[in-house]
Simulated scan of single mutants.
Amino acid sequence: MAKTGKARHRRRKRRTPVGAAPGTLIADPAASATNLCLTLIAPDKRRSIRNAKIADIAASRGDWPVIWIDCSGLADVATIGEIGRMFGLHPLAVEDVVNSDQRPKAEFFDDHAFVALRMVDDAALQRYEQISVFFGEKFVITFQEREGDPFDPVRRRLAAEGPNRLRARQADYLAYALIDAVVDSYFAPIELISDEIEKIEEDMLGGAQKGLMQEMHVLRREITVLKGVLWPLRDALAALIRNDDPFVTRETKVFLNDTLDHAMRLIELVETQRDTLTGLIEMHLSLTQARTNEVISLLTIVSTIFIPLTFLVGVWGMNFDPDFSPWNMPELRAYYGYPAALLFMLGIAFALFWFFRWKKWL
């Protein structure tokens, strides 16, 4: 999961110009093309219209108990603004849809709620995107930056034959199901990070290795991103549960409470992973330092052994004249002087080696 060999590029989000009127919609030049998917929901049937138009929404709005508009791509701000006006969405909330760098939050208005979330777009690439969820008495509207989402289980439940709780309940329950899918989508990247941490831990049992520190720092940065998303996500879910607006029923709050438990579990997992990585980084530094100390100790011992040998070689290598004085190294004329000198120096080396072993320095 940790891509240490590839450069990571961050795209700067386009913001509303300074001084613009509140609710001004400015499209990001890099935004994906807008595509609408209209799902019409009744207790005993369901109908889906892909590539829907505003006219399809207007024609179907009053004939179905619940409608779900899924808008992927934020390039067509005119269509987004028209949907906002059609359902009476607050202009500031619609502006937050286009400015897709919002902190996860939940806001409540007279007849609808707005929830901004970060969802996992690609678990393997650690790519996230903002998803905005509006829901009121008979509608749910989702805006996402590009196609691809974790809503397929919800779509399959809506399309299932027979009695269906998702079709039979009100719009707030559908909004809960979508939010729950977003929250559950975080388990996949967190499990991938756990696998990476376990692999690094196993590799580290053999000692510090080059490249592990970089991988751990990349993983810790990813965990920091997850932590920064999950904590406000928890607050948004708690706000949905605490609110007293009539379009969020008591029954749905029970299910939202379960989603809040999932978010808390994710936060606990991320905190545990962060602590584990911190411990592994400290362990790697300790192993590296210990290895460095071992090398320095070995080099010091080798140098210590050769110091007296170097001294003797230096002394015997001086220019002496034994004919001038008996103090001028008479052993230079010894027949076995050279092997005797080598044996003497070898004895000193063994004596120093034994002394270091006795002191448990080796």
Rank of each mutant, 00 (worst) to 15 (best):
T278W: 01
F353G: 09
D70W: 06
S32A: 14
R15N: 15
V18P: 06
E201G: 00
L346N: 12
R291V: 01
A106L: 01
I26L: 14
L309G: 04
H262I: 07
G88I: 11
A236P: 10
V94M: 13
D63W: 01
Y173G: 02
T224G: 14
R333A: 14
R8D: 12
I267K: 00
E161H: 03
N328W: 00
M1C: 08
I241D: 03
P246Y: 10
A290K: 07
P29Y: 07
I296E: 07
L343F: 11
G5W: 04
F187C: 04
V140M: 01
K53Y: 05
C37K: 08
T292H: 00
L36R: 02
R14D: 14
N99D: 11
M213Q: 09
L309D: 09
A238Y: 05
N243A: 10
V315W: 06
R14S: 15
E196Y: 03
A30E: 15
F87C: 03
R221F: 06
K210C: 08
A30N: 15
W358Y: 15
A341S: 12
R61A: 09
D323F: 02
D122W: 00
Q130K: 14
S185N: 01
D152F: 00
V313A: 15
A78W: 01
W327E: 08
V315R: 03
R333E: 11
D195G: 02
D195K: 03
Y173D: 09
V97W: 11
L178G: 03
L25C: 10
L266V: 04
D76G: 13
V248L: 06
P17D: 11
A93R: 04
W358N: 13
V98N: 10
V218D: 12
M283P: 00
I197Q: 00
R47V: 10
F355M: 13
E282R: 05
I200G: 00
R12K: 15
G62W: 01
E198M: 00
F353R: 14
C71L: 15
L352W: 12
P43Y: 05
L256Y: 04
L343V: 15
V182F: 00
F320N: 05
V270W: 01
F134P: 04
I267V: 12
F139N: 02
A290M: 09
L233D: 03
E95V: 12
L280K: 02
T276D: 03
R47G: 02
S194P: 02
K360H: 14
M86F: 13
I49H: 00
L362V: 12
R167H: 03
L299V: 07
D261Y: 04
